[in-house]
């Protein structure tokens, strides 16, 4: 089966001369949740906007469900729903009207039952006759999601769906994303919250300065790049790491009470046994120890740092 989204050699240079995307190649599989991570200005929104038809691309090809987004835009766009990063809503329309409008715009016959289902799933049913301007920010965000779901898209883009959203709505959103995935919807989301990617995504792509620097299965990524730390709480603080131990991956905490040893979980030998033996030889006593796995967040920060 062909991928739901296929991006090949995609470049984008804005009129300002800024090159926002450089040679992006990416396939998104049907039914997966793909998280796109990257710092501010990395090009996440640009990539999504090109796929959805809001921004023109400079060169390259994009297929949505096998349809070229430029030459066969009608078929391609029919498959796609988009929740943009910015809260751009009408003001005077009611929730019901604006969601029905979206469905019509995407060429679907009216279906009040479906709209009702979408509104109920987003806890918007009570607000259906409210004007959008009278809603809170979080509620407006829900309305934007409802609009994107109004035409039953096969592929859903969520550009920072949980930015500026309270904990409850964030949980709701995750729940909704899971339910959509169960129904076979492909979901591409961008986020700055790593925990979100960690919690939701099947695969993760990292984009930095317009380049896709990594695409990996989430679990593989966390295993491959997962570093562990061993922290030793010392009996007596040290001034510095003893010279005789300088060949080891050791760091001293600022107050001198902790020695931190970093090791790779994927390595055959972690070197812990050696470390402990040599500490004993040197007479460095410790009263406690613990290990910690680095989170996706640290992985991500390291990746982006390495790039710069």
């Amino acid at each position: 089966m062909h991928p739901d989204i296929s991006v090949k050699n995609l470049y984008k240079t804005y009129a300002s001369g800024h090159q926002a995307l450089k040679d992006i190649n990416l396939d998104i599989r049907r039914g997966e949740i793909f998280a796109l991570l990257g710092p501010n200005g990395a090009g996440k929104t640009t990539l999504i906007s090109i796929i959805c038809g809001i921004v023109n691309h400079t060169s390259g090809t994009v297929l949505a469900d096998g349809h070229n987004i430029a030459s066969d835009y009608r078929a391609a766009r029919t498959k796609i729903g988009l929740v943009p990063q910015e809260l751009n809503t009408d003001a005077f329309e009611t929730v019901w009207d604006t969601v029905s409008f979206s469905r019509g715009l995407f060429g679907k016959a009216p279906n009040p039952a479906h709209i009702e289902k979408v509104l109920k799933s987003l806890s918007l049913w009570d607000k259906r006759d409210s004007r959008i301007m009278a809603l809170s920010g979080g509620m407006k965000r829900r309305v934007m999601i409802a609009k994107a779901l109004s035409h039953e898209p096969q592929i859903l883009f969520l550009d920072e769906p949980t930015a500026g959203v309270d904990v409850e709505l964030r949980r709701d959103m995750w729940e909704l994303v899971r339910r959509l995935r169960e129904n076979g919807v492909t979901i591409i989301l961008t986020t700055h919250y790593i925990e979100e990617a960690e919690e939701m995504a099947d695969r993760i792509g990292v984009i930095s300065q317009g380049e896709l620097i990594l695409v990996e299965d989430k679990h593989t990524l966390m295993q491959q790049l997962g570093k562990k730390e061993l922290r030793l709480h010392l009996q007596a603080p040290l001034e510095s790491v003893p010279d005789s131990l300088s060949d080891l991956q050791l760091e001293l905490s600022d107050d001198g009470t902790e020695l931190v040893y970093t090791f790779d979980t994927s390595e055959e030998r972690t070197g812990i046994a050696t470390l402990l033996r040599r500490l004993a030889e040197q007479g460095v006593d410790f009263k406690d120890l613990r290990t910690r796995e680095s989170s996706l967040e640290e992985i991500f920060v390291n990746l982006v740092k390495a790039k710069v």
Binding site: G53, I54, A76, P84, E86, N88, L105, F106, K147
Partner: peptide, 14 residues
Amino acid sequence: FSGTIYEVLSAPVS
């Protein structure tokens, strides 16, 4: 002006 044009641009309309 309000930004809602995104929807028309992303819709399958000629």
